[in-house]
Amino acid sequence: MSIGCLCIHGYTGSPEEVQPLVDFLEARTEWEIANPTLPGHGEDLDLEGHYYQEWIAAAELALLDLMKRHDEVYIVGFSMGGMIAAYLTAKYRVDRLVLLSAAGKYVSLPQMAKDVLEMAGDAWNGVLADNDLFRRYQKKMRDTYVFSTIEFMKCVQFTRPYLREVTCPVLIIQGELDGMVPKAAAVYLEEEIPSTEKEVVFLKQSKHLICHGDDKDELFNRVLEFIGSAQQEGVT
């Protein structure tokens, strides 16, 4: 049985956001894994003139390409990519869905306040340049085209109703220290998705960039165990 897996990164992000998980899966499986760059995204952002429909279409084309060659296809979506993944899962026959920090709801104000205070403390101590969170988001804030944030919100609003049409097994993973997507988002996803087989995992030491967090090994193993169980079911 041949297997394809589509990974979809988040808003203002790049494939690097999920690449550690891709590397982990490629080292342990024979799956074909697609990890495309959404239009206007990547290490050098160029979001002006791009719309959320393009982001969805790019992921959809990558999915259709995998479906041509494989018996089973899985989707892993991070942040905004999680919402696109849910939409595509509802639209096509996808066997398993993994949602990582999926932006069904966004901005956790309490955790964001903690992150800001942490960065302020590092700035006071003269070590702000060493703060990983600051370094990751400084470039994004500088390069993000302001009207693209509206496109991000439109993307979430468009895809959100399709959560109720997802029926395949779903794994939802959320970092408890996520300052961009609140912990309540995972609960919301669990309530909205009607799948009979679904699991929610909270990672205690992870912030938004969950594939790069302190709990990444637990995340990788959870994803492999969840998706791998589909193959075991197919054999029995």
Rank of each mutant, 00 (worst) to 15 (best):
M141Q: 11
G213L: 00
L61W: 01
G126E: 05
Y74E: 02
M83A: 07
Q157R: 12
F152L: 13
R222G: 08
K207L: 02
S229T: 09
L6K: 06
A59S: 13
G4L: 07
F147N: 13
G10F: 03
K216N: 08
S148D: 15
I173C: 12
N131E: 03
D23H: 06
L100N: 00
P194V: 11
D214K: 11
P20F: 03
M83G: 02
F226S: 00
V18H: 04
N221F: 01
F202C: 14
R93H: 10
L128E: 09
R28Q: 10
F147M: 15
I84Q: 11
F78W: 04
M1W: 01
V116L: 11
E17I: 02
F220I: 02
A129F: 08
N35A: 12
G179C: 09
C5E: 00
R96G: 06
H208K: 01
G175Y: 00
L177P: 02
E151I: 09
I33K: 05
H50W: 01
K183V: 15
G234T: 08
S2I: 03
T149F: 12
V187R: 15
D178L: 06
G104M: 11
V235G: 12
K68W: 10
G213E: 11
T159Q: 13
D132Y: 12
T149W: 15
H9Q: 13
A57E: 13
D143R: 10
F202L: 14
N221D: 11
H41I: 01
I193Y: 01
D122V: 00
P182H: 09
I150Q: 15
A90I: 04
E191V: 04
